[in-house]
Amino acid sequence: MITLNVNNKTYQVDVSPDMPLLWVVRDTLGLTGTKFGCGVAQCGACVLHLDGEAVRSCVTKVSRAEGKKIITIEGLSANNDHPAQLAWEEIDVPQCGYCHSGQIMSAAVLLRENPKPTDKDIDDAMSGNICRCGTYPRVRKAIHLAAEMQEKDKK
């Protein structure tokens, strides 16, 4: 049995310690917001937060997550109201939407560590997330907007 803390809930899962966190979260816990895209840490569809870092769950063994705090897209905010989510909605970023759990989870780390990201900062943070629909121009726009929203919230 492995004990996991996911979205502030504790779970006991009976899986191989080698199983990637992605499949534990998706198949065992039924939290399907975290997506399978490539399986080799190339695309970023599977990004979730492990102790606040934008970890790629497809190559992260569940054993690494023991004793750590896991946040998936389902647990990023209570009401779809993380600044990234609000900005994504305002800009209508997603097309098919499949990659955007990962995009948003990556953007959330950027926005936390750099409240006023420049285009270059956005490049540095988001170049690991692939979008086949080509929503990149809107991802960029939405991150700038999210930064503004976040700033306003603080005031």
Binding site: F36, E74, N80, E89, D92, P94, G97
Partner: peptide
């Protein structure tokens, strides 16, 4: 605004997989 946007931001949209 697209009707399917909100559900694509919190993992609730159900794709095939």
């Amino acid at each position: 605004h697209r009707l399917d946007t909100p559900m694509k931001l919190n993992g609730s949209a159900i794709f095939g997989l």
